[in-house]
Structure formats: C-alpha cells, structure tokens
Design a protein around this nucleic acid. Structure first.
Lengths: 200, 200, 200, 200
DNA sequence: TATGAATGAGGGTTCATTCAT
DNA sequence: TATGAATGAACCCTCATTCAT
C-alpha cells in the first residue's frame, strides 16, 4: 500500500473513532452507563453495529478509548505544569486552576467518569493509572518546593495524596450537589488550606 | 408463633443473610463486580437461586445490604467521634486513627468497596450519602475548632472535603500499591499536614 | 377411625376448601388471573402455603374446584328448570330470568370466569362441559315445545345453541361495557326475539 | 439503502414473521397456550431465541400479531358485507355464509382462537374489540332492516348480540364435538330461526 | 470495508411443589 | 396435620459478538 493510502486510511480510522467517541459521550450523558450498548453506540454514531468492530476490537477496547480520550486533557494539565519553569506554588496553582476550569466546561463527561464510575475493569485500571501519575507529579512538585525551601520538609508523597484527594472529592461533591463553584475561588481556597494549614 | 420460634426464625434469617454476605464478598474479591450474578451468589453461598429471593427482594436489595453491612463500621466511627466531648483536634485524630485501624484490619472488604466500587446505582447512592455524611460531620468539627479558636476561620466545608478526600485517596492508593502503613504514622502525617500546612 | 371423627374431618376439610375459595375469589376479583399464585392464596386464606396441598392436590385441582363451585349455581338453574312441570316457554323464561339474576348479583366472579377465561386447561374443559350440558338441557326444552305444538318443528339443537350463545355473548358484552341491564327486561327481550323472530 | 434492498429486507421481515406465525400456531395447536414460550417458538421456527426479538418487540407483541393475523379474515367478512348494497337479510346471509365457510376451511386456527382463547390480556382485548365491532356492524344491519320494514322494530343491539352469540357458540360447539356442518345448511337454519322465530 | 440479521449464553425473577421440622 | 423455607426449572428478555452478504 502506498504511503498516501496508508495515511488516508489512518485518517479515516481516526475520524471514525472520534465520531464514535462523540456518540458514546452523548449516550453516557443522557442515559448513563447502562445505556452504553454497542447497538446504541452504532446507531447514535450513524454506523452499522458490525462496523464498530472494525475500529474497536471489543466493547472493552471502546470504553478504554473513551476513558483515555476524556482523561487526556487532565493528564496534559499535569504534563504542562511539570514542564513549566515556575516555583512549586505556581505549578500547584496552575494545576488546580486548569483542572477546575476543565471540569467546569466538561461536567457531562465528568458525571460519567466519576459518579458512574462503574464502567469496566479496564477503565478502572486506567483511572488508577491516572491517579498514580497525578500523585507522582504532585510529589515531584512538593519535593521541588521542599528543596526550594518554600515548603516544610513534609512527606511529599502524603502531601500529594492529600491534594489529589481534596481535588477529587471536592469535584465529586460538586457534581453530586449540582453546585457551580468558580474555579478561581476554588483554587485559592484549596491552596490556602494546603499551604497555611488550619492552625492560626 | 411462640416468642422462641420467632427469635429462632430471626436468627436463621440473619444467619442466611450473613452467609450470603460472605459469598458476595468472596465473589467480589475474586471476580469483580461483573461477576456478582445471582446465580453465582447462590452457588457460592451453597443455596438455590430461588432461596436468595426469600431473603432479598431483588439483586438491588442484596447489594444494598452488602454495602450497608460493609460501611456500617465506618459510619460508626464518625458517630462516636461526634458524640465525644473533646476538642476538634482530638475528634479529628480519633476519626483518622480509628478509620485507618479499621482499614488495616479489613483490607479485603475495602478492596471491594473502593477499587471495585462500581456496583450499582443504589450502592453508588449509598456511597454518596456516606461521603456527604462524612463531610457534614467533619464540617461541624471544623466549625467547632474555629469557634474554639484552635483553627483559622477557613471555609469549614472545603476543609472537610479536603480531609475526606485525603483520607479516601490515600486509602485507595494504599490499596492499589499494596502498602501497609501503620495507622499511627498515617494519622500523624495527615493531621500535621492539615493543621500546619506546607509553609514553613 | 370412628364415624364421628371421620365426619369431623370431612367438615374441617370442607371448611378449609370454602375458606380457600373465598380467598381465591378475592384475589381473582382484585388482581386478575395472573395474581392467583399459591403463595397469595395461602396468605389471603390465612394458612400456610404447604397446607393448601393437604386439601388440593395441585394448583390445577384448586382452580378446578373454584370453577366448579362458581358454576354450580348456574347448573342448578338448569336442573331446577328441567325438573319443573311447566310448558317449554315457562321453562325458558325461568332459566333466563334466574340466570340473569344470578349474574346481576355475582358480577365479580363472572368477570373472572368470562373475561379472564384464560385459567387453565382443566377449567376450560369444565366450562365446555357446562356449555354442553346447557345446550343439551335447552334442546330437551325445545323438543318439548315442538311436541307441545308451541314451537315450530325447527332443529332443536341449533335453537339451543342460538339461545345459549345469545345468553353468553350478551352477558359478556354487558361485562365489557359495564352496563347493568334489569334481568326482567333482558329476559323479555331475548324471549321475544327467540319466539317471534325478526319478521313482522 | 436502495429501493430494491429495502423491498428485499421488507420481504425477509415478512417471511420471518410468517414463519414465526406458523410456529406459534403449531405450538398452540399441540400444546395449548401455556406451551407458547418464546423458547419454544424460536425452536419450532428454527431460529435463535434472540432473533425473535429482532421481529417482535416482546411476547405481547408477538401474540398481538398472531391474533391479528388470524382474525383479519373474519373482520374482512364484516367489512365487505357492510359495503355491499343489498337488503339487510342479504347482508346477514352473506356474513353467515362466508363466516361458516371460512371456519370450515380453517378449523385449525379456530381451534386456537376459540377453544384456547385464553392467550393474554392483550389478545383478550383484541378479541373483545372484534366482538364489539361485529355487534356494531350487525346492529346497523338490523336497524337497516327495521327501516326497510323487513324486520319488526325490535332492539337492534340485542338482536345483534343474539346473532353473534349464536354464531360463536355454535362454532365453538362444532369445534368441541368435531362435527362438520355444511355452511349452507348452517346458514339457512340460523337465518330461519332468527327471522321466523320459534312460534308457529 | 460496511452491513445488520443471527446468535445464544447469560441476566434477574417467579412460583408450583416438596419436605424436614 | 400445619408449617414455610428450600428448591430449581422455566420464564421473558438483553446484548456483545460473529459472519454471510
């Protein structure tokens, strides 16, 4: 096959997967996880059910793709923060703000990812790996802060878990209560608590 | 029916439900949530499938029972802490220590509750309500601390979310990495971070 | 066993069956045929499910009993009419009037017997035998009328079918439209049609 | 999809439904209504159980189809008679004759429709509606006859019930006794009874 | 490659019947 | 004899996957 044809094919493939992704997100948003059948995905995406299997080896594979594509931006947030040349505090602030902003503009997907997290084992693994990566990144940042002298010499790993936990739980809580917190205020509150602690 | 017979019957009933609980936990541990079919529960519990329906009105009901029975001790931890007459810090310490201790001695169940938390909508609701209760309790404690003057006048609700998030995520993380942290050290680290913050 | 004991036993047996009959009629009236489970019959009758099987060999047997007991009065209507020493016309009138009166005072049971006739094969057979008996009786009456010279020498069997069909269908129709026709008027209309025909 | 393909698909669909119809009728004939399970229908039709659900949304739907397909010709008989420009007597004669002829050539189906008419609530409703329509049509005919002066001014509705009842019961009776009455003779007998009455 | 009908294992649930107490 | 928990076959229905076209 010529290089051109190959590239064309790859593009078609990518187009298809994107279209399926959109369909899946729509279904998940409207009907919840139990509504995500291959039939409905195919119908919503406007393709034949059989065709799905030309692009996804299995439903498991499809869900994996959805999960990955959805989480991609959040891992990017971390990646970019890590690549920046700023202080630990600045990095933290950047991560929090961008996370909360992304969340604010993508509530529907988050609803599926968090509240209805009963997707499949593969997604669970993926979620776990995202969390582990997030903790690792945060740990690095905290270690940087400690090295900089900005932070006390605490257990950086524990601090990372605390922060990620705070972010996740407050995000989920916001989803379940249908609140809409401004990313700015949210970021500041969290950072203040984390940096200054509770003691006067 | 005589009082004795009634009590006997109630005991048999309880025995059955416990036996089903054990079977369900075993299945969840070994095969994950998708493996939890009524057929398998019955087989594992060593009863006929139809018999399950003499004790649980539906699968939904059964899952509810499992979740409730598993979560019961954790809500007790909060209830008892709230009932104590101690300072906010003491209450926090009590909750954390007892939580981590309970966790340390019941990893199996947590494995199912957290890692495989994708059970059913009803369990999801239950989980959510536990979380909301936890946050409410913690909020009260933080408000008490603020009133006492022990804590800065922060947003108590946010602080509660931070702490619960920290507890949950660090618990999950410990599960996924197969670590075994001493409850004592864990409690102290978390409290130190929370109370003193990161800044030197 | 003494004669007394035997009679006592028989009476208990009869009492039980009557009580079950009442329960079954109540269920059929309120919940329809699909609601007639052995569980519900036992519960409504206030006995243990297992006890039912001491009085009825099977559900089939129970339904048979219900059907028979319900139809009994209607067959009595025919029996008594046949035993009377009146003209054919008087017999016909008696049958119709008493049938329609019995119907008027027992709509609930008829609802179950006619509209929800999907009971069981055994009941179907019973119903068929009732119908056959009714036709036989009516045939005799028509033959009597022909012999008396009151009726034309028509095919008595066909005439019997016509009358029984008229009765059944008009009864069912009345059930389905929730009408309440006076037995008197109904009887007269039917007799007039049957005796005088449509031609002027 | 091309027009051809669409038509082809529709034909396949129709073929499948017909094949399922045949299977259902066979089961109903041999095993009665309680034998009509989706499993057996699928097996008898030589398709997988799941495939049934590609053509019928539910068992209820399937039964509806069976009933409708079976009753269709009988409602046609009425429709055509009503459309004719004849006297009331001619219409009556036409209906009776064609009904009895249809019956004579389709005993198998009638066996299921009448003797085993205990199918499902939905079919019961259907049956009821057929009967109601029949009565309405006959009522119109009788009213026409009365207006023409051919019939006495009787209650047309009751007369309709009488005739439909006569038809139904004599049909059922014939089924249960395995008789074979010639449609001609049958029609004439019924008409004679109806028009001239019993009195000499 | 695209299609969508066919598949059939497996889902939760019901209920007539049995039997140890 | 009375009980009611236990049974398990059978029910209707779903849906991921396959494969002939």
């Amino acid at each position: 096959m010529s290089d051109l044809a190959e590239r064309r094919k790859e593009m078609m493939n990518s187009l298809m997967r994107d279209s399926v992704y959109a369909a899946a997100v729509e279904i998940l948003t409207n009907q919840g996880v139990d509504g995500l059948t291959m039939d409905r995905v195919a119908e919503t995406a406007g393709v034949a059910k059989g065709s799905l299997y030309n692009y996804f080896a299995s439903k498991r594979d499809l869900i994996n793709f959805i999960y990955g594509k959805t989480m991609e931006p959040t891992t990017l947030i971390f990646d970019e923060a890590m690549a920046n040349h700023g202080s630990a505090s600045e990095k933290l602030e950047g991560i929090l703000r961008r996370w909360f902003e992304y969340f604010a503009t993508n509530r529907g997907i988050f609803d599926f990812l968090f509240k209805n997290s009963r997707i499949s084992d593969v997604a669970e693994e993926y979620k776990q790996s995202c969390r582990t990566k997030g903790i690792a990144d945060l740990t690095v940042i905290f270690e940087q802060g400690i090295a900089e002298g900005t932070f006390r010499p605490v257990n950086a790993l524990r601090a990372a878990e605390v922060l990620l936990g705070a972010v996740i739980v407050s995000t989920e809580q916001q989803l379940s209560t249908d609140e809409h917190r401004p990313a700015e205020e949210w970021t500041n509150t969290l950072l203040d608590l984390l940096l200054n602690g509770l003691k006067p």
